[in-house]
Amino acid sequence: MDRDIIRAFLWQEVTFLGFRPSGDKGRKKWLREYNRSLLDFWELGDYPDTPRVDGGALTGEIDAGFNLNLFFDYSVYEPEKFAVRFLRASNRASEFMWTHEVDGNYFDFPSRSVLNRLDERRKRNSALRKEAEKHDVAAVIDGLLCHPRTHQHIEYPITPHKIRIGGGIGNAFLFLFHLRYQLCLIKEKRLAERGRLIELFWDAIKNKSDHYRNELSVFELFKKV
């Protein structure tokens, strides 16, 4: 089978398993765990404040710390309707840099619908899963999180070239998770995290029943490396 089709299938699966928490409670839990995980993953001095509900959105504010002099805040209305604002911490006060905004009301290439059609659901899911290999999951993790094909380097003030901000990510949870990886300055942690994610999703996909579409536990998703 075409590797691209296998990876497209995995792309969907990984997104579903980790980055489409269901229901209001699930999203709150995901975001709280997300905020909590940053202290350890970035090895900062402080936890960020907990997320809040504000004007119908789940909001949070993150100090991306220290060397980057960068803050960002997020407002998530729906997985495909959200905004992340980036602010530079300067000598005087913080200055807005840019906003990554996704408005799901507008048309985009309907990759999910197309794949579902192609998939013929249960018959082909099993076959795809059987043919998928770990390096396929690795390629998907890279494309989604660690090295998105379409990305920006913010030359200043985010100077490290290894930081790639994925410009085409339309899912709030995926975008935040990829920021978590990209804004980590510790190469050992990045490396370990990439390996952990590949193992985590590989296990989840291999062990998944066709009949259950369980999300990964947020505690697994944000487990310390």
Binding site: G45, D46, D63, L87, A89, S90, A93, S94
Partner: peptide, 16 residues
């Protein structure tokens, strides 16, 4: 250092 860091994490706080 601890106090310098704790103030620095507040959005809107300048270095001075």
């Amino acid at each position: 250092l601890s106090h310098f860091q704790s103030c620095g994490k507040k959005r809107g706080a300048g270095l001075s």
